[in-house]
Every structure is written in C-alpha cells, then in structure tokens.
Amino acid sequence: MFQPASLKGDSPTPIDENVRKKFIPIYLLVIILSFVPVSILEYYIILYLWRTPFYLMFVLLFPLNLIILIYLLQFSATLISFLFLKTVNLIHTPKEGIFERNIKDKEYYFWNLRNIIKKWPLYVAASNPFPWFKNRFTLRFFGVKIGKHTLCDNTWISSEFVKIGKNVILGMNSTILTFGIEQDKFILKRILIEDGALIGAKCVLLPGTVVKKKAKLGAHSYSEYDFILKEDGLYRGHPAKIID
C-alpha cells in the first residue's frame, strides 16, 4: 500500500548512544560491503553495453537495470548483515527476560549491537519503492517467522522474537514491539501471533503478548505486557479488554 512518509523508514529502535558511538565502523562497513556487488554489476553492464552499436540497447534496458540494482542492494545488505549477526550471536546468544538498562549488562549491550547491524538492511527494505520482497523478506532472514498470505508490509515489526502465523492481517501503521524500556529496566519478550488473527490499524502490541487463533484486536488499542488474547475473542481499549 502507499504508505505515508513516516512508514518509509525502518521500525524505531532506540539504540543506546554509548554503544552506537563504539560500533559506527561496523555500521559503515555493512553499508560499504553491501554496495560492492552493486558497483561490480554496474561496472560490467557499462563495460559491455556502453559501446558503439549498443547505446540504444543500454537506454532501453536502463529501467530493468535500475530494478535489478535496487534489489541487489537490498539482498546484499541483508546477506552481509545476516553474516555479521550470526557471528555476533555465536559470541552471545540472545535471551528473553528482564535486564538492567545499562551497558554493563551484557544482554542490553548485545541487543543494541544486533540492532546496529540490522539497521541498514531494514531501512533499505522499508524504503524500497516496489511492493515485492519488502520488510517480510528481510525480517525472515533475521529469524522472524512470518506465515503465508500475511499482510505485514505497512507495519513496524521488531526484528527478533516474533512469530506470526498464516493468513494474519496486520493493520496499517500498527507496531509490534518485543522490547520495552521501563526507566532502568530493559525487557525482551517473545510475541506470538497465531493463524487467522486480525489486528486493527494503529495498534501496539507490547512484549509478551500472545494472540491466539482468530482473535481480533480493535483499531487504536494496545495490549499490556504478557497479555493473552484468547481464541475467537474480540478485544479493544487502552489497554485491550475483552468485549462480551
């Protein structure tokens, strides 16, 4: 769908400034490495097509060239950050739980590091002008499980600890958060959305929410921490409560 400009960016992740300062070289390295295949391909296209008999061919193939470049950039960015992510996860495996919001806490530190690595591919995917292989494709690489026929391209989904089933409709502009920052506590919890669930526009799911099969959440409502939406239930409100 034609999303508003605010949704053209990636999902908001409040990365700690102290960690960000340290790992800016890694962030830049992901960007630079992702441009390498793009520039190699473009170099060969120009080398072979920018010649006397082929000028018109180059011009006619330019739109196709542009599409390929955009997707190549997205795929290479995803792959490279995926490799970085795997190495980081080998050093420290991600865990759920409640932690201190302090860089000395290892979980919090590595959560920030993972998000720095994932930022560039998620940004490229979200600002891709074409509707194919968007956020869902990139998120699947990072371990988010998303089922078939799920509408999720115009929502903000956190990039880990999320599992979404088949035939789910996620409304426009809703947010799925698996992290919560409560003053000096940092919370990481899994979110599970089962098959056939329906979530309205501009909803917020806080960490620990479980949406059972065919449960429905009305527009503009948010769910509390560790809230369970029962099967076939209809929920609404701030925070969400069951209706009849």
Partner: peptide, 11 residues
C-alpha cells in the same frame, strides 16, 4: 465485529 476493527490491506 466489523464495527470497531479498522484494518486495511491489499493482497
């Protein structure tokens, strides 16, 4: 059910 669920999406 439809009353207060406003979602949008196009496959």
């Amino acid at each position: 059910n439809v009353q207060f669920i406003s979602t949008s999406g196009v496959y």
